[in-house]
Amino acid sequence: MATIDTRASGLTKQEPLWKRYVPGHHWRTQDDEFDAAKIGIWLFLATEVLLFSGMFCAYAVFRMLYPEAIAAGSGYLDWRFGGINTVVLLISSFTIAMAIRNVQLNQQKWATINLSITWLCAAGFLAIKFIFEYGPKWAEGKRIGNLFSYPYASTDHEHIWWSIYYMATGVHAAHVLIGMGLIAWLIYRQRKGAYGPTHYTMMEGVGLYWHIVDLVWIFLFPLLYLVH
């Protein structure tokens, strides 16, 4: 159905939640509410981009000052882990976009499957990051600034590289973790029938957030793992 029906009357408890959804009384239609919510999410994403731009700026500054440390530092990273994680995040971005398409078409079973794949990809990303990257590196003494204790450093400023690395990827990993919580909530609500063709505002919002997490990694990956 192309028209979005905002009439709440006449709908019984047998109808799914998304059909019974009534927008806030200050909205004329569900569309108005949806559009306003979406602008709100975009504003939030703007602050997210600015948050990460601070880290990209730090990277640029220290790359300019100590190119040797950045070159040596990126040499410690294995592009294979970064590459796998890039693929994992790209797939998860695709599946959450597909999940939104699924609820728009009321394909509830497929929506659950796609959301679950997204969640598993997020978990996989963090598992690879912690088990193969953070863990061994921290144990070797490749740590943030003052905590740096790696005896085989080849340049003067390697601890600065590790500060940038842990801060940028760590804040990104925190976003992945928050995203996992949000996606888990989406799965729970979606199983209850909360999202459907006329109402899926929360899925759209979380979807946009998840894509921004992907977008940040698209830039972090080459800067940290590939460029030297």
């Binding site: 790359r63 300019m64 190119p67 040797e68 950045i70 070159a71 040499g75 080849s154 030297h228």
Partner: peptide, 16 residues
């Protein structure tokens, strides 16, 4: 290391 420090590392990235 998969990547040895670049030959002319002093000005590899940018001449400061």
């Amino acid at each position: 290391h998969t990547r040895k420090p670049h030959g002319n590392s002093k000005d590899h990235s940018r001449v400061p």
